[in-house]
Design a protein around this nucleic acid. Structure first.
Lengths: 149, 149
DNA sequence: CGTGAAACCATAGCATG
DNA sequence: CATGCTATGGTTTCACG
């Protein structure tokens, strides 16, 4: 993980479909050298893969919410995870410090759909109580800067 | 936006670097037909682009928090956005319903770095008060399912 | 790491339904 | 309108030095 790797990652974050020779020209390497580095980054888990960024609104997934989840008793992260996986509206989930046990990021097609998803979320047995916060607008959404801390 | 487009999007979300002929084989189209559809999806904004998924921990961005932001008086989303943009630790931000005005998703390299970012966030003049929730572990992180609504 | 070769891909133009 | 074909130039992906 040197400076060259970081520049390669920056390029791929900006456009995952750019060619290795394009990246190579930008960072001063040959195309095979770039591929070798990318393969290594994938192998070591620094890069998890490449994905398309979809506009959720265009796909009819324009309604989001963050839900604080309070569980009954002490539950392991793995068990929470197992119960959240079957819900397709759950796009992300985290265990957190503070009063809540977890924060669940929901995405749905409409307020009605969101309500439905919330109902299914609340039906999960280990969940005691939820506090939902509906997203009104997305102010910002960007990849973390690959450069240092 | 028909079923074919959705299957193409699924494929690209799963791997943004797969070739048009590969996708074509999977969905039953020729490579040029797939490219034309992808170009159209990019044009119409359904697809916003292609990006590499980086492992934040591997890059030293393993510390996250969600911060409820309470502003002074009535502030427009655009003005909040303008103040958040210069903070590189802000990876996402939303205006929300409820008591808070916004939720800010922070990512930093360490607790210390997070504290520093929080301090800079709180220094934003229009911000009255913040409530931070530190992420302990990531349970789930996946793209929204393109199918149904 | 770079070079070179073979297979593969992107992409524009043209023809078909 | 969207599709499939075809041609050409660029790309990927080896093996080798």
């Amino acid at each position: 993980m040197d400076a060259l790797d970081q520049r390669i990652i920056s390029r791929l974050v900006a456009d995952a479909r750019s060619s290795y020779s394009e990246i190579g020209k930008a960072v001063g390497l040959s195309a095979p050298a770039v591929k070798r580095r990318v393969d290594r980054l994938l192998d070591t888990g620094v890069l998890r893969g490449f994905t398309a960024v979809v506009n959720p609104e265009a796909l009819g997934w324009g309604t989001e919410a963050f839900v604080e989840v309070h569980c009954i008793g002490n539950v392991t992260p793995d068990r929470i995870r197992a119960r959240l996986l079957p819900l397709p509206e759950v796009v992300a989930a985290y265990t957190v410090s503070g009063a809540a046990d977890a924060i669940v990021h929901l995405r749905a097609g409409s307020i009605h759909h969101l309500e439905d998803a919330l109902e299914r979320l609340r039906a999960v047995d280990m969940i005691d109580r939820t506090v939902s916060t509906v997203v009104l607008s997305r102010l910002l959404d960007r990849p973390p800067a690959p450069e240092l801390s």
